[in-house]
Design a protein around this nucleic acid. Structure first.
Lengths: 304, 304
DNA sequence: CCGTTGTGATAGCCATGAGTTATGAACGTC
DNA sequence: GACGTTCATAACTCATGGCTATCACAACGG
């Protein structure tokens, strides 16, 4: 494997032209350079490839034997280059969109439409990510862009555009005393202060600030919440609420994934609304990524 | 085609080991050298082939796409090297034996037997050469060894061994007056002096000293012979003699090729015998060539 | 908690490779 | 016999590919 592809190309060129001078100008190198390279190749193989007869050049038997193989090697390499080129463009056109649960609200089709209208070659690919990763795959590079809940940990590592801002709800078993209280509330809401003593379902500790956010730590004045259980997906949350392990805060858009059977969700007074954003890495300047963020910014302007 | 085979080998090695350090020691290069080469390859292709993650190395999508093609290129190159190797040994084992007419006298089988008994890999190939080339292909390299008539032009450029020494004959039409004279001669011969006025068939002028030799210029004391025609093969000679264009000197061993129908050959008194030799280029030191010459020397010792 | 080990990247050095221009030797052509 | 063509050679430049030494970082183990 100790040969330069260029040398093989030089060899085939001389073999085709049967002239060092003509081959050299076809290859845009000087004739001595070509002569030397061919000699190097011959030396390397321990073989004479051309019979130079002062005036004429012709292939030796060995050269004749090498020629088709040299062409095969070059063809194989061209195929390799083509494959790389194809993989490169495929990679450039693919946009991996991370999300913990489906963002819903018609966001995906809206953003997709805006993306492909400006970049018809774009190939958006959706990727489901565990709730534990607040960055929905941005942090480890498995997503190019992602739907995330603000606030993000390491806020300055990301660029983002808010696409939805909506009150947080609390998911309750339908027989829960607070369910009745909400029913009698003029706005159908419960006060967060009424939830302070409730056991809460929490994200795993690895979720960091995101865990704190969905426990609404900022609204508890430093008092630690009671933890009724650990959940990492909508399905688990539904199960845990229905079985009475605890209650859980939800984004309005995620409510349909949790509310069914014996679980209801009611708005909460006294906590900040949730903010859903499309994010990417701060230093990511790729065209498709920026285009998706721009689309998100436009859509966000109409929905928020 | 602008890539070094080595780089592809490096690439496949790293892809197999998934570790620069291990791949480097497998390849007997230092780890930094390997790192640098892979970076060069990536730069050349404008692509990232490996994802280096401090602790782990893994192929990117593009690297994955390249890998099988890289292997294909390497395989193609190995096939090419094998083909060259085979052609090289084939060339080393082939011995091209040039001859103007078949030397006859059982020489070819005898020499062949001696050659292959010592070099079983030898592949003797016979090659017919026009009479005009006294060196029977040695001069232009189209023969490795050759049966030639002495004296050779450029005597010092060749090494040779005499394998047959025999009187020269003259070919005559069977109705020629000298035919009858020969029949009445006690030895069945004619004197060369009787031939001095006869028209002679000559080789073409390009044949040089060989032409002079078969006109027996040395036996004419400087008088120019009459030229009845130009011939360059046994067939032409027979035709020309039969049609009465002239007479021609022949080596005894060649007589059977010319004597038939209306042409006869009789020994000539007063000219030197012809000498058939096996020759090669003076500076040719190849084993098979020397072996064939040695065989010729042995056979010549028994026949002369 | 800190030192050890193992990994890939970086820096600086040097021999060689691949290109250049200028020139030479052999041969055909006018 | 001067000229043009063709391949080989010489002398030089600059990039390439290799080395050693060292760094930065993560994982382990005491």
């Amino acid at each position: 494997m100790n040969v330069h592809g260029r040398d093989l190309y030089y060899f085939t060129s001389v073999a085709e032209e049967l002239s060092f001078t003509r081959a050299a100008e076809r290859l845009f190198v000087s004739q001595p350079a070509l002569s030397k390279q061919i000699r190097m190749l011959e030396k390397q193989l321990g073989v004479v490839l051309f019979e130079r007869d002062r005036r004429t050049v012709r292939l030796t038997a060995v050269g004749e034997a090498l020629l088709p193989h040299a062409r095969a090697v070059l063809a194989a390499w061209q195929a390799a280059e083509a494959a790389v080129e194809e993989a490169k463009t495929a990679e450039r056109c693919t946009l991996v969109i991370g999300m913990s649960t489906s963002p819903g609200r018609g966001l995906l089709p809206a953003l997709r439409a805006r993306l492909v209208s400006r970049h018809p070659e774009a190939q958006p690919v959706l990727r489901q990510v565990n709730w534990v990763d607040a960055s929905a795959g941005l942090a480890d590079g498995s997503s190019d862009v992602a739907f995330v809940w603000l606030p993000l940990p390491d806020d300055d590592r990301y660029q983002y555009a808010v696409v939805a801002r909506e009150p947080r709800l609390v998911a309750l078993p339908d027989g829960h005393p607070l369910a009745a209280r909400a029913a009698s509330d003029p706005e159908g809401k419960v006060d967060f202060t009424d939830l302070l003593e409730e056991p809460f379902l929490a994200l795993p500790p690895e979720a960091g600030p995101l865990r704190d956010y969905w426990l609404a730590l900022d609204a508890r004045d430093g008092r630690q919440p009671r933890i009724g259980g650990v959940v990492a997906s909508a399905e688990e949350t539904h199960e845990a609420v229905a079985s009475g392990q605890g209650v859980a805060l939800l984004a309005t858009g995620n409510a349909p994934l949790v509310v069914r059977d014996e679980v209801i969700a009611v708005p909460v007074r006294g906590i900040s609304p949730s903010q859903l954003a499309v994010a990417a890495c701060q230093d990511d300047k790729r065209t498709l990524v920026l285009a998706y963020l721009a689309a998100a910014r436009e859509v966000g302007a109409t929905t928020c």
